[in-house]
Computed example of a mutant assay.
Amino acid sequence: MRVLVTGSAGFIGHALSRRLLSEGHAVTGFDGFSDYYDVGLKRARHADLAGFPAFQAVEARLETPGALLDTVARHRPEIVVHLAAQAGVRYSLENPAAYVEANIVGTANLLEALRAHPVRHLLLASTSSAYGGGATSPFRETDRSVTPVSFYAATKLATEAMAHSYAHLFGVPTTALRFFTVYGPWGRPDMALFLFTRKILVGQPIEVFSGGSAERDFTYIDDLVEGLVRLMDRVPPKPGEGGPIGEADTLSPVAPYRLVNIGGGRPVRLGRMIDVLEEALGRSAERIPLPLPPGDVTATRASTALLQALIGTVPETPIETGIPAFVRWYREVYRTDVQPAG
């Protein structure tokens, strides 16, 4: 296949691109290398992908007029996986304009490009944060999501709605995907696991929100990528050409569009995650308890009924395996106990 991956220098984009390239597919990687976190890590991810002859890199920003249209017209992908976005719940309180530009304007630019040059399937990354306040556990795709508690979540909900409208109006087959706390090697420096690892290794205290009682549905990167790859062939049918596959299905009655969770469905307390990390590092952490920040939720847990109905059982890597794998990668990359500045 010819696949366009936006955000290919990002954590998930790099892992997905590497998997596709290793299986013989051609990947065009589109990334703007924003400085939200260490650009050097993003460059290293793209350098890793450059070792595959079938990888072509496009350095451009989503919101730049014509950049996505030109890329789609030139490379003519069959599948598009839209992972590029301005991420981060807390940063959205500081710089909401970045979320409007990248998430809303950028996604609109992509949808217009696909309107002009149709593809077989668009897979659109969203977030478990979209479930918002008052969501009941487990989070089901059929639940009404109208109460986002962060601006980040609000922009991702907007991209889901925008994609549905293009699926209805212009027949762009779309699967929107809500990810649940993805972690693993090559992970994001702004995420808790990366932050905690760095601080514990240099003897700094770590800030533990909600006293460690908050729960997250941690999803190992390889498990998420497996789900993405299998979903590529599960193109939502047009109205009248196929019906829902069960009560959990979110297939739109007016468009080739559905919404799917990708998570393990087995939340872990933050305190337990830190215990496992301490064991993998061979060091104890000084924990500073803090209240939950604005925009965060106390717990996330994915319903996996629809995902399993679509693709069958996917691997569920426990944190007792996934966290040590991350620690091994971290120590190999940074070599010392002190992470380089940047």
Rank of each mutant, 00 (worst) to 15 (best):
V5G: 02
T6Q: 09
I12C: 06
L16D: 13
R19H: 10
L20H: 07
G24W: 06
V27S: 11
T28C: 11
F30A: 09
D35V: 02
V39T: 11
V39S: 02
V39I: 14
R43H: 12
A44L: 13
A47Y: 06
D48G: 12
L49F: 03
A50R: 14
A50T: 11
V58D: 03
A60I: 03
E63Q: 14
P65W: 02
P65L: 02
P65A: 01
D70T: 05
H75K: 07
H82F: 01
L83E: 04
A84F: 08
Q86T: 08
Q86M: 12
G88R: 03
V89L: 12
Y91L: 11
Y91Q: 13
E101I: 06
A108N: 04
L110N: 04
A116P: 04
H117E: 15
V119Q: 08
R120W: 04
R120P: 14
L123P: 03
L123D: 06
L123Q: 07
A125L: 10
G132F: 09
A135G: 05
A135F: 06
A135P: 05
S137P: 00
P138K: 05
F139I: 01
R140A: 12
T142R: 08
R144E: 15
V146F: 09
P148M: 10
P148E: 09
S150D: 11
Y152G: 04
A153E: 01
A154S: 12
L157Y: 09
A158M: 07
T159A: 03
T159P: 00
E160A: 09
A163Q: 03
A163R: 10
H168A: 15
F170Y: 15
V172M: 10
T175E: 10
A176M: 08
F179R: 08
F180D: 04
V182E: 02
V182L: 05
Y183V: 02
G184Y: 04
G184P: 09
M191C: 13
M191T: 14
T197C: 12
L201S: 01
P205F: 00
I206E: 11
I206L: 04
E207P: 00
E207M: 08
V208L: 14
D217G: 03
T219I: 06
Y220W: 13
D223C: 06
V225I: 14
L228A: 04
V229L: 07
M232C: 13
M232I: 15
P236Q: 08
K238N: 13
G240H: 02
G240Y: 02
I245N: 09
I245E: 08
A248P: 01
L251T: 06
A255G: 11
R258H: 09
N261D: 05
G263N: 09
G263C: 04
G264L: 12
G264Q: 13
V268Q: 05
V268N: 01
L270G: 03
G271Q: 07
R272D: 11
L277I: 08
L281I: 00
L281M: 10
G282S: 05
G282W: 00
S284T: 15
A285I: 15
E286M: 11
P289E: 10
P291G: 02
G295H: 03
A305R: 12
Q308H: 14
G312I: 12
V314A: 13
R328A: 12
W329M: 11
Y330G: 06
Y330L: 04
R331P: 03
R331W: 00
Y334D: 02
Q339H: 13
